[in-house]
Computed example of a mutant assay.
Amino acid sequence: MSDTELLARCTTILPGHRPRRPAEMFSAMAAWCEANGISHDVYGEGALIQDFERKVAELLGFEAAVFCISGTMTQVTALRLAAMERGKAPVALHPTSHIFVHEGSNYQLLHHFDALSVGDRHRPWTAADITDIPDRLSAVSLEIPMREIGGQLSAWDELEAIKAHCKQQDIHLHMDGARLWEAAAGYGRPLAEIAAGFDSVYVSLYKGIGGLGGAMLLGSSEFVARAAKWFARQGGKLVHQSPYVVAAAMQFDARLASMPPLFRRTQFLYDVLRDHPVIKVNPAAPQANMLHLHLPVSRERALEIRRKLAAEHGIWTFHRINHGVLPDTSYFECYVGDNLLDTPDGRVREAVALLAAELAAAIG
């Protein structure tokens, strides 16, 4: 039986949100459009998209926002503009930045900007990571939270110090806010307070929000207008962007309202995991509704355990898993979404205990 077939038979799925089938998603979109009298935009012009852009801009405390079909395009464009404004001085990126890890050197091959890898790849930035750089910088791009290290956040006082330094030195401070919605619960602060002091912010409309795709870039009216022109130059303006906007807008408020309960569910999961030290957790305490679980077995053995738990108990423990740094270790990301929120406490405890027992048996 394939993994896809096993997953379909599982009654308990721990990570993520329950995916909607295309027919289900499109039906919900059609009903929402009918109820709200929605018309298509034309190359980004229209009430639907422009009202949603204003809503997101006001929520985060910015003058303006513009939709872009791709988060990858959104980020490198914002940083390119910042570099162009400052003599093409380099951009500071964390070693785990999405731009380094997942974007195939686009910033370099497409001549967007020069980049410096700054900080410890296993830790979020401190202010000293930025203030100690001797080079002139055009921009600093800070991911909130940092996905590749388990959803960690820079400490609030460190973040405030980074903001102050960038303002004093005329360094464009950009936020990779792909999961900013999740970070608000972790910081325990309003979105606008977190975003205050940034010159631009990118947010995703499909990760925590659950849309079909797309992103928004926020900043001053002048900066956003320039970015929109560059999106068009790069083929990022579709004749109708409304499907992507509808898919996000129709559930935006509900998804934001779900973030505090998801964070509380993450805290519950941490409590469960404390009883099973064979599973190591990063970060040590929840900072967003995501975490990394480190296992004392190889990636291949972990996949065998996943198949066994799925076949024998109907439990799906993780989606993707990575090789660990040490031999015969592995780790996976757990995003706490609707699946874990809707699973009874006892079943969560059972699932974690079964995983821990298999791991203990595997290492003797």
Rank of each mutant, 00 (worst) to 15 (best):
K280L: 13
V245N: 00
Q234W: 14
Y206L: 11
L79T: 02
G46W: 00
V278G: 07
Q267E: 13
L341T: 12
E358N: 10
K237W: 14
I149K: 01
S105E: 15
V336I: 15
E148Y: 15
A83F: 08
L14R: 06
S138Q: 04
A64T: 05
A225I: 03
E85L: 09
Q234R: 12
S154K: 02
A254I: 08
V91M: 09
V336A: 09
D51N: 14
T329K: 06
D253N: 12
I133Q: 05
L191Q: 04
L355H: 02
R189E: 02
P261R: 05
G208H: 13
D41C: 09
R80E: 13
L291R: 03
L205Q: 01
F62T: 05
I38T: 09
F268D: 08
D199I: 06
S97T: 05
K55Q: 15
A249L: 12
A248N: 03
L180H: 08
R147N: 09
P260G: 08
H292D: 13
K207N: 13
P283K: 05
A228H: 13
E45C: 11
H40T: 10
G37C: 05
G213L: 10
R136S: 11
F26K: 05
L326K: 13
R21E: 13
G214L: 09
H319P: 02
I363V: 15
A361R: 12
W181Q: 14
T4P: 00
L7E: 10
A23P: 10
